Amino acid sequence: MEEAAEKRYAVVTGANKGIGFGTVKGLASKGATVVLTARDEKRGLEAVGKLAEAGLSELVVFHQLDVTDPSSVSSLADFVKTKFGNLISWYDI
């Protein structure tokens, strides 16, 4: 009997360009649901649009994040908990 595949989720910071963008694309291409974050909302949404053009719109969502702003980090944590049901850090693994 084949076991059901475990659903994977990821949050990638600074993901509107460069390595972060490539990481989101790679993770989503492998079937993970990814929260693409960026400080600049416009740039973040543009990055999500590029990924949608690549057929990954169902697997990538955007949330604004400035890692230097505690309220922004808290907002992201609340978003992840609400949308996906829990939040686990790689520190917890």
Rank of each mutant, 00 (worst) to 15 (best):
Met1Arg: 11
Ala4Gly: 08
Ala4Asp: 10
Ala4Phe: 14
Ala5Leu: 14
Lys7Asp: 03
Tyr9Gly: 10
Tyr9Arg: 07
Ala10Leu: 06
Ala10Asn: 04
Val11His: 00
Val12Asp: 00
Thr13Val: 07
Thr13Phe: 02
Gly14His: 10
Gly14Arg: 07
Ala15Gly: 09
Asn16Glu: 06
Ile19Tyr: 11
Gly20Pro: 08
Gly20Thr: 13
Phe21Val: 04
Phe21Ser: 01
Gly22Pro: 12
Gly26Lys: 04
Gly26Ser: 03
Gly26Trp: 03
Ala28Lys: 00
Lys30Tyr: 06
Lys30Cys: 06
Ala32Pro: 08
Val34His: 02
Val35Pro: 02
Ala38Phe: 04
Asp40Lys: 11
Glu41Asp: 14
Lys42Pro: 04
Gly44Tyr: 02
Val48Gly: 13
Val48Lys: 02
Lys50Leu: 15
Leu51Phe: 13
Ala52Ile: 07
Gly55Asn: 05
Ser57Pro: 10
Glu58Trp: 07
Val60Asn: 00
Val61Glu: 00
Val61Leu: 05
Val61Ile: 09
Val61Asp: 00
Phe62Pro: 03
Gln64Leu: 08
Leu65Asn: 02
Leu65Lys: 06
Asp66Phe: 14
Pro70Val: 08
Ser71Ile: 06
Ser72Lys: 02
Ser74Trp: 04
Ser74Asp: 15
Ser75Asn: 15
Ser75Leu: 12
Leu76Cys: 05
Leu76Met: 09
Ala77Gln: 15
Ala77Pro: 07
Asp78Arg: 14
Asp78Asn: 15
Lys81Ala: 11
Thr82Val: 13
Phe84Gly: 04
Phe84Ile: 01
Asn86Pro: 04
Asn86Val: 08
Leu87Gln: 03
Ser89Thr: 12
Tyr91Cys: 14
Asp92Val: 09
Asp92Asn: 14
